[in-house]
Design a protein around this nucleic acid. Structure first.
Lengths: 150, 150
DNA sequence: CAGTATCCCCCCTGATACTG
DNA sequence: CAGTATCAGGGGGGATACTG
């Protein structure tokens, strides 16, 4: 097996998601997109990523339907990358990563960016696991039901 | 974990989180841990990962305080990897990945595993973005407030 | 500005063999 | 069972030069 093993066909949506955006750069690029970045050079400057890598990632993510390449919104001659609905669906993953990072990767007093509600400036609430009827749930109360599949 | 270009010090918790668990295997290992897998060989069989890779990942994640290595709970002579509180905090990230994967990576009718509430068997509810007072929020109503940092 | 092309290093990854 | 040691290779990744 020359190529990296794919977990696409394991029947687990987590594995399939990681097959698409599980590399190191993709979610950082997407995070920047949520922050309003849309142009190639903007991404490059923000991330410090090599041009070749950035081009490959943007191409891959566009092929996956996460970005779409359209005319620039400012009327300039250039084009820009914008998130599709599928790409915008990744927002909660970014938020979950952010909240975990805030909780466990910063020493008390260490500064970091925060996600706030634009209208009020108040912090966005924590994501919570809930049951089908809205009641709070602990992870221990859940289980993965496997489906018989090939 | 040595990285070619580290984004640890950018002041963004998302970047810092990805520095820790942003590689392709880590979250799959952690997903398996949430499914009850605790032993080296169980991980290896479940993931189809090379032993060397698995050993390196488990070592790194243990050093990061995500796993801890303790005596086997079944009283056998072997040891087992269990998630720390920090590791268990990653559950929402897994759930977010799962929900996105279910939404966008499966064709209608294609089978996949699902996360259910153990007591009732009903599907776990969707994660939702909410404001500080519990009101629903769209990502467009949020923004990242950057902090002046080194 | 927005990439493409190229070079090159070395890490990641996988496979196998070996050990306590 | 639970790793460690070792090896081979491919491609991730960075840097630079070049182009439309």
């Amino acid at each position: 097996m020359v190529k990296r093993t794919s977990v696409w066909d394991t029947g687990c949506p987590v594995a399939r998601a990681l097959d698409v955006i599980g590399d190191w750069w993709s979610l950082l690029i997407i995070r920047d997109a949520f922050d309003g970045i849309r142009r190639f050079t903007e991404f490059q400057n923000s991330l410090g990523i090599a041009k070749g890598m950035l081009a490959a990632r943007l191409k891959g993510l566009t092929e996956q339907g996460i970005f779409e390449l359209g005319p620039a919104s400012d009327g300039s001659a250039y084009r820009e990358y914008s998130l599709t609905e599928k790409g915008r669906g990744l927002f909660l993953i970014i938020v979950a990563l952010r909240q975990w990072g805030e909780d466990y990767l910063y020493a008390p007093g260490e500064l970091h960016s925060v996600l706030v509600e634009r209208s009020s400036g108040s912090l966005v609430g924590r994501l919570e696991l809930r049951g089908g009827h809205g009641h709070p749930l602990d992870w221990r109360q859940t289980e993965v039901r496997k489906i018989a599949n090939a």
